[in-house]
């Protein structure tokens, strides 16, 4: 499903080029729950950006279902981000002036979902991740961290993506809530055959995923 071949990413900095990723190659099958661990600055988030078509590699390739992301046009990249992948961020990154329901409706709109029935579909997704009728009407500031992350997950799965990219999804949550969020992602992976790639510091959580890659200084050291 996902094949990364000899992926390299360099950033220009005043002090010279910085090698964020170096010769990364990995494969992930459909429906797998994969974790990527590593210290800060090891290149985890950069790798996730590459997989999400938010950034382009310096060299190498990323193929999702046989499509090379580097060869996509800007418009195709936008469509890929809207329909093929879902993002879950450590900081949740919900739109603050929209309610939980409207945040999910926004993803449905970007995914090309017809406006009729968008509200009902968003409500269904939010209930699926464990929010009640009152909570889905609230703006992010009036939700707890765990509830906000559930909204972010509902937003990520809104368009039935083949791949969910989660950047430290439990990083801002207490261990109990973090475990619940992990369980929710794990359940989605199993029930909807969605591939999930999660960056995490939590070795306990990483230990429960199907596969774990360890990054160090931009290179994969263990698989």
């Amino acid at each position: 499903m996902l094949a990364v071949k000899k992926l390299t990413k360099k950033f220009s900095a005043p002090s010279g080029d910085v090698q964020a990723l170096s010769d990364i190659s990995l494969k992930v099958e459909s429906g797998q729950f994969v974790s990527i661990i590593g210290k800060s600055g090891s290149g985890k988030s950069t790798l996730l950006s590459m997989l999400g078509a938010l950034d382009i590699p310096t060299s190498g390739s990323i193929e999702v279902d046989g499509v090379d992301l580097a060869k996509l046009s800007s418009k195709q990249q936008t469509s890929y981000r809207a329909k093929t992948i879902g993002f879950v961020f450590q900081q949740y990154n919900l739109i603050p002036n929209l309610s939980a329901l409207e945040n999910v409706m926004l993803a449905l709109e970007f995914g090309g979902h017809k406006s009729a029935g968008r509200r009902e579909e968003a409500a269904r997704l939010l209930k699926q991740v464990g929010l009640d009728d009152q909570q889905i009407q609230r703006k992010p500031a009036r939700l707890s961290g765990g509830q906000q992350q559930r909204v972010a997950i509902a937003r990520a799965i809104a368009n039935n993506p083949a791949l969910i990219l989660a950047d430290e999804p439990t990083g801002n949550l207490d261990s109990e809530t973090g475990q619940k969020i992990f369980d929710l992602l794990h359940k989605l992976s199993r029930s909807q055959n969605t591939t999930i790639i999660a960056v995490t510091h939590d070795l306990d959580i990483a230990g429960k995923t199907d596969k774990t890659f360890t990054l160090k200084d931009g290179k994969i050291t263990t698989k």
Binding site: S74, K75, T78, R81, A82, G86, I95, L106, R155, N159
Partner: peptide, 16 residues
């Protein structure tokens, strides 16, 4: 800026 980045990351086109 961050909100704009998020909108683009979750599939919002430049036009939208």
């Amino acid at each position: 800026r961050r909100e704009i980045g998020v909108l683009k990351a979750i599939g919002g086109s430049n036009l939208k």
